[in-house]
Amino acid sequence: MGMTGVLRPGHMQLKVLDLDEAVEFYTKVVGLVQTGRDATRAYFKGWDERDHNSLVLRDAGEAGMDFYGFKVADAATLEKLDADLKNYGVTTERIPAGDLLETGERVRFEIPSGHQIELYAHKTDVGNGSGYFNPPPWNEASERGIAPIRMDHALLYGPDIEKVQALFVDVLGFYLVEHILLEDGVTDLAIWLSCSTKAHDVALVRNEEPGKLHHTAFLLESWEKVLRAADLMSMNKVTIDMGPTRHGVTRGTTIYAFDNSGNRFETFCGGYQSYPDWEPLTWTWDEVGPAVFYHDRQLNPAFLGVYT
């Protein structure tokens, strides 16, 4: 088996202005499945995710991301990666099991871009609602609202992204899939990193303000579902930032939109399958427009300036 170490993005805790309003938005419009609630947080997953939660909303009076967590293969891997991080000079802390509902002990650390990243090995398997024997291909939850398959990736904004890349590659086993160069032809504006065969599990854009979220992305299974998502956004008067369109980077089809706290989210489909031995794809500064929005061929001002 090829997949070891860090398996996938597993959870994101997102700050919202009003928890009840956010719960309504992510349930009825985005069509995530609510799986739990505690004093300050509501827990959701995409219909086809099997672990208890992926998107966690926290009542914070502001927007943005608290932390982004990756699931690792097992408890021994968690211990090894914690030790590897410390040897690399990263300060880690342990968050006890149960702090997040149905989630085991977490190792949390700050990366040079100012984001809180977590690793964990356990989250309770609750299934996708179709069972484990002779399952039907889809179920009621897959048709309600936009109904993404899963939380897929995130784009983070912050400084020192080359240091983030080194940490993710050298310690956590990620590899660079694509990058966009700045005008100097040397420095990266943006990097796309994968721990799997997805074209990206996390991406970063260089930004002076640390610790910011550009978007969290939810996976849809077809371009037609992306168009259906756009219909649902208009039916519900959701603020669309861009799309439906295609990214040059990853080739994914996309809509960027804002939730009712102003956090950008993406409904995403496609992107090619990548492998760690592949040469990274490079986009030059003069092609930054089509790299990000392949059809408009220019960045909108919001791409660089609007984040939470």
Partner: peptide, 18 residues
Amino acid sequence: LTPTTSNDNTSMTAADIN
């Protein structure tokens, strides 16, 4: 917000972004 870039107007630089 910084100016929009396009493939025929690439006046924005790293300094603008930072």
